[in-house]
Amino acid sequence: MTSCHIAEEHIQKVAIFGGTHGNELTGVFLVKHWLENGAEIQRTGLEVKPFITNPRAVKKCTRYIDCDLNRIFDLENLGKKMSEDLPYEVRRAQEINHLFGPKDSEDSYDIIFDLHNTTSNMGCTLILEDSRNNFLIQMFHYIKTSLAPLPCYVYLIEHPSLKYATTRSIAKYPVGIEVGPQPQGVLRADILDQMRKMIKHALDFIHHFNEGKEFPPCAIEVYKIIEKVDYPRDENGEIAAIIHPNLQDQDWKPLHPGDPMFLTLDGKTIPLGGDCTVYPVFVNEAAYYEKKEAFAKTTKLTLNAKSIRCCLH
């Protein structure tokens, strides 16, 4: 018999989150649709729960009410004593943790798909938090293969000092899905179709896995975050240069030392320094102006996964 890495157990509980950011409308629209008619997301033997994560922000069509829901799922915020004085999103995070967690427990949901849009030209993107997770690498390989020839990129946010504390991190297997470009507060049919297909293929993978299909060893190309880059700023902290036209919409493309990065209003080009080629992502993302992030630098690498098969009882 072929030796293989056996994944822990079959997958039982899956959640699909929309509206973690209330103005990213593809996930909101799909989740609302699936709450009314969820036939397309159901798979035999699998509990799939669509869920609106930040209903107040969705109602106002804004990213958040008090603070970013997708950055506060750490033990400090989840452990705060519940009171009306807490920011709305912290209270909501505790409610979500109660419903789908608790985080880092045996009772937490197996998989959470968190649906997002970006204003950046990132196409279909899967966000991975753990480079050693054979199950998710296999799932992402399946999704990428199923979507081809449509490109699907994998963004690895594993980093020693950049801690995200994402909404989906309460699950055993957290999956971020990011599709763009799409303006905030807008629905685009092409973007919706791409996100819908990503979810379909992900659920198909889980179904095949649960039925005992063995997935042979595989490898995927990923883009691992190195650092986030702020806009150049003046002495008052105001933005002093904008994304250069040569960099705009060039997510995932190589940016070499000396290539144009920013452009000042008086026409001066600010190039990339250093001696390493990087791959920019979230270029000129609207939501990241407040976070002082013009783009993120990534490096390209390959992740390998062992063969996996479900432990059938």
Rank of each mutant, 00 (worst) to 15 (best):
Ser146Asp: 01
Phe209Ile: 05
Thr277Met: 08
Ser131Gln: 10
Leu255Gln: 05
Glu221Ala: 04
Thr264Lys: 10
Lys197Arg: 10
Pro87Gln: 13
Pro260Ala: 06
Ala219Pro: 03
Tyr288Gly: 15
Arg71Tyr: 10
Arg309Val: 08
Thr125Val: 11
Thr145Asn: 10
His116Thr: 05
Val186Ile: 13
Ile112Arg: 03
Leu156Lys: 03
Ala148Ile: 07
Ile157Pro: 15
Gly176Lys: 13
Lys297Asp: 00
Leu25Lys: 12
Ser169Ala: 08
Asn37Ser: 11
Leu192His: 05
Val90Asn: 14
Val175Trp: 02
Val283Phe: 02
Tyr88Ser: 09
Asn37Cys: 13
Ala241Asn: 03
Ser161His: 15
Lys163Thr: 14
Gly38Trp: 08
Thr277Trp: 04
Asn37Ala: 12
Ile225Tyr: 11
Asn236Ala: 12
Lys60Pro: 06
Val90Lys: 08
Lys103Gly: 12
Gly79His: 11
Val278Phe: 11
Leu136Met: 15
Leu30Ala: 03
Ala7Lys: 08
Gly273Pro: 15
Thr166Cys: 07
Lys81Ser: 10
Glu36Asp: 15
Cys4His: 08
Ile72Lys: 11
Phe113Tyr: 03
Gly18Asp: 01
Ser161Cys: 14
Ile6Asp: 10
Cys218Asp: 00
Phe51Val: 07
Phe140Glu: 00
Tyr88Asp: 12
Ile111Pro: 01
Lys163Asp: 14
Ala240Arg: 12
Leu301Lys: 10
Ile111Ala: 05
His207Trp: 15
Gly101Met: 06
Glu214Gln: 12
Gln138Cys: 00
His116Leu: 11
Asp130Pro: 01
Thr269Trp: 05
Val179Ser: 04
Pro87Gly: 14
Pro160Thr: 11
Ser108Met: 13
Lys300Val: 08
Lys32Asp: 09
Ile225Gly: 10
Tyr279Leu: 01
Arg56Asn: 12
Gln182Pro: 01
Lys60Gln: 11
Thr44Tyr: 14
Gly123Ser: 05
Val278Ala: 06
Glu221Cys: 04
Val31Gly: 00
Ala219Tyr: 07
Arg132Gln: 12
Leu46Ser: 04
Lys32Gln: 13
His159Asn: 10
Asn37Tyr: 12
Ala93His: 15
Asp204Gln: 01
Pro87Thr: 12
Ser307Leu: 06
Glu40Gln: 04
His33Phe: 08
Pro280Trp: 02
Ile41Asp: 01
Thr298Val: 04
Gly38Cys: 13
Pro151Cys: 06
Val58Ser: 08
Cys4Pro: 14
Lys292Gln: 13
Ala171His: 03
Gly273Ile: 12
Gly38Tyr: 13
Asp204Ser: 03
Leu272Arg: 02
Glu235Val: 09
Pro174Asp: 07
Asn97Gly: 11
Gln94Pro: 06
Gly38Phe: 15
Leu25Pro: 07
Cys67Arg: 15
Gly123Lys: 11
Phe29Tyr: 12
Gly79Phe: 14
Asn23Thr: 05
His256Ala: 15
Ala93Met: 11
Ile239Cys: 06
Ala305Lys: 00
Ile170Cys: 14
Thr20Lys: 02
His21Phe: 05
Asn134Phe: 11
Arg56Val: 14
Lys292Tyr: 08
Ile11Gln: 04
Gly212Arg: 05
His256Lys: 11
Tyr109Trp: 06
Ala286Ile: 05
Leu147Ser: 04
Val222Phe: 01
Tyr64Ser: 15
Thr264Trp: 04
Pro254Thr: 05
Lys291Ala: 12
Thr119Val: 10
Ile112Trp: 03
Pro260Glu: 06
Phe215Gln: 00
Pro245Gly: 04
Tyr64Glu: 13
Tyr289Pro: 09
Gly101Phe: 05
Pro181His: 02
Tyr289Met: 11
Thr26Tyr: 02
Ala171Phe: 04
Tyr231Ile: 04
Asn121Tyr: 04
Arg43Glu: 03
Arg63Cys: 12
Leu128Val: 01
Ala219Val: 08
Thr125Asp: 00
Ala57Trp: 06
Tyr288Ala: 15
Asp85Ile: 12
Ile11Met: 14
Lys80Cys: 09
Phe205Leu: 01
Thr118Glu: 02
Leu263Gln: 11
Asn97Gln: 07
Lys292Trp: 07
Asp193Ile: 14
His141Asn: 14
Asp85Leu: 08
Leu78Ser: 13
Asp74Phe: 08
Ile41Arg: 02
Thr166His: 12
Asp249His: 03
Asn97Phe: 08
Pro254Leu: 04
Glu76Ile: 14
Pro102Glu: 08
Glu76Pro: 15
Ala15Asn: 02
Tyr64Asp: 08
Asp259Gly: 05
Val28Lys: 12
Gly273Tyr: 09
His98Lys: 12
Pro254Trp: 02
Ser120Pro: 01
Pro280Thr: 03
Ile11Pro: 06
Val14Ala: 07
Thr302Tyr: 11
Lys291Asp: 11
Gly176Pro: 10
Gly18Val: 03
Phe73Ile: 08
Asn23His: 13
Gly19Ile: 03
Pro55Met: 15
Phe295Gly: 00
Thr62Cys: 13
Gly267Val: 03
Gly273Lys: 14
Asn210Phe: 03
His201Leu: 11
Glu36Pro: 04
Gly176Ala: 11
Asp259Pro: 01
Pro50Ile: 03
Gln182Leu: 11
Ile127Met: 09
Ser169Asn: 13
Thr302Phe: 10
Phe100Val: 08
Glu285Ala: 11
Thr118Cys: 06
Lys32Thr: 11
Val28Phe: 08
Phe215Arg: 00
Glu36Ile: 09
Asp259Gln: 14
Tyr173Ser: 15
Ser108Phe: 11
Val278Arg: 03
Ile308Asp: 02
Arg56Cys: 14
Pro50Thr: 11
Phe295Thr: 00
Leu126Pro: 00
Phe17Thr: 06
Tyr142Trp: 12
Ala202Ser: 07
Glu238Cys: 08
Phe135Ala: 00
